Simulated scan of single mutants.
Amino acid sequence: MPTDTSASASRNTTAITGNAIVRVGPVNPTVAKALAEEFDSLILPAAGAERDTFLQVHADAIRIAVCSGKIGVDTELMSRLPNLEAVINFGVGYDATDFSQAAQRNIPISNTPEVLTDCVADTALGLYLSTLRSLCAAERFVRNGTWGKGENFPLATRASGKRVGILGLGRIGQAIATRLEAFGCEIHYHNRSQKPGVSYTFHGSAAELAAATDVLIVAAAGGPESANLVDGEVLSKVGTQGFLINIARGSVVDEAALVHALQNGLIAGAGLDVFAKEPTVPQALLALDNVVLLPHLGSGTHETRADMAAMTLDNLRSYLADGSLVTPIS
């Protein structure tokens, strides 16, 4: 009979108390309050001597880590937590956590899927319209008094009826596609594998997708496998009349190549909600008028953040109760 190597099989069934739960980095205020008041959890200090001292005292006792998609349980931290059993992640993205090491050690990870799909897709649509129609630049044109001086704002690009490529046709990618269909857009996509039952046109690579479309929308998951998926070659396929929209992760796009393409007119423009080293945005991007810049606010609504907080705490309570996660990452 094969041996069960699942996390549930090897889980320590003794009760998990406050000093076995650690909060890693800043988290949603509702989650932070519950961790402190309901669970009496530990808080991991920032990297440095204080963290080293903290881990010397607490590392062996820690069994659950609660983190955000931006600051996860990275390789070094996970390796210093020998009895870690589960990672509870606030956010759909989990690339800040060492997924490979977690898999090797049978440490399950949860995230908060589906509840943020609509708001992220809405953000993508907003970026799409703002970028092609130059809405943010037009708003600045009014605010700085240029329009009042009698000047005309430059013509922009029609947003309806475009050929749009979705790079990553997961839940969010499909929600974006549905919204763009209402604008009469022709949807194309590239995914790790072709989606069954999808009528959109499939392309075998990101470069092929970019070459076949007018706008490339990046909705792929982050992590090592997708790092710099949109590189200089893909951007050259986007073309001088094409646009890039990124609501996925900054790591999916080669940021230096993107800056070069925007500065030299190799693509027409870009709309970005994510960046390689957040919250740092390259100075070169700040100086350009053909790029729309947002502060990673894709899921940033009161309603969605409340749903994400509830799902995060549901995962934590479920694991404490019986070692299962409500929304585990498969």
Rank of each mutant, 00 (worst) to 15 (best):
A175E: 06
F141S: 04
H190F: 01
I109D: 00
L132N: 06
A211W: 08
T146D: 12
V281N: 06
T14D: 15
R192I: 11
D95M: 03
N111S: 01
L266F: 06
P108N: 01
E233S: 13
S324Y: 03
T213L: 11
L294N: 06
M1I: 11
V292C: 13
T53W: 01
G323S: 05
P279Q: 10
V274R: 05
M308C: 09
V120L: 02
I329C: 04
L285H: 02
N315Y: 05
A207E: 11
Y94L: 04
F202D: 11
S160R: 12
I21T: 01
L262F: 07
I247H: 05
A309G: 03
E303L: 08
V27D: 09
H296D: 10
G265A: 09
T201M: 01
S10H: 02
A20F: 00
N19Q: 14
G18Q: 03
S8L: 10
G173I: 05
W147C: 12
F202Y: 15
S130Y: 01
D307H: 14
E186F: 06
L132G: 02
L132I: 02
E139V: 07
A256P: 03
T280K: 11
D52S: 11
T312N: 06
S318H: 12
P82M: 10
L320C: 10
T123Y: 12
S251P: 04
G18I: 00
G170A: 08
G271S: 08
L266N: 11
N28R: 07
A210V: 02
L180P: 13
E114N: 12
Q263T: 12
A220S: 15
C119A: 15
D214I: 04
L116D: 03
P108F: 00
G170V: 11
A156G: 11
I245M: 06
F183W: 07
T3Y: 08
S199Y: 08
H188G: 06
A182V: 09
I176T: 04
I217T: 14
G232T: 09
S10A: 12
D4Q: 00
A15I: 13
Y189Q: 02
I172M: 12
A256W: 03
L116H: 05
F90P: 00
L169D: 06
N19C: 10
D118Q: 14
A175M: 10
V142S: 11
K237A: 13
R317F: 04
G93Y: 02
E37V: 15
L286Y: 07
T146Q: 15
H302A: 15
Q174D: 15
R192A: 08
G232R: 10
A32M: 10
S318W: 06
L135S: 10
L235R: 07
T301M: 07
I107D: 03
N246R: 04
S160N: 13
A261H: 10
V326Q: 07
D289A: 14
L55T: 03
Q56V: 07
L313G: 05
L81P: 02
L288E: 02
V274G: 09
L135M: 14
C185I: 03
G69D: 12
T97E: 00
S318T: 14
P2A: 12
G265Q: 14
A212M: 09
D307W: 08
G222D: 05
E38H: 13
T53K: 10
T5L: 15
E181Q: 15
G222R: 01
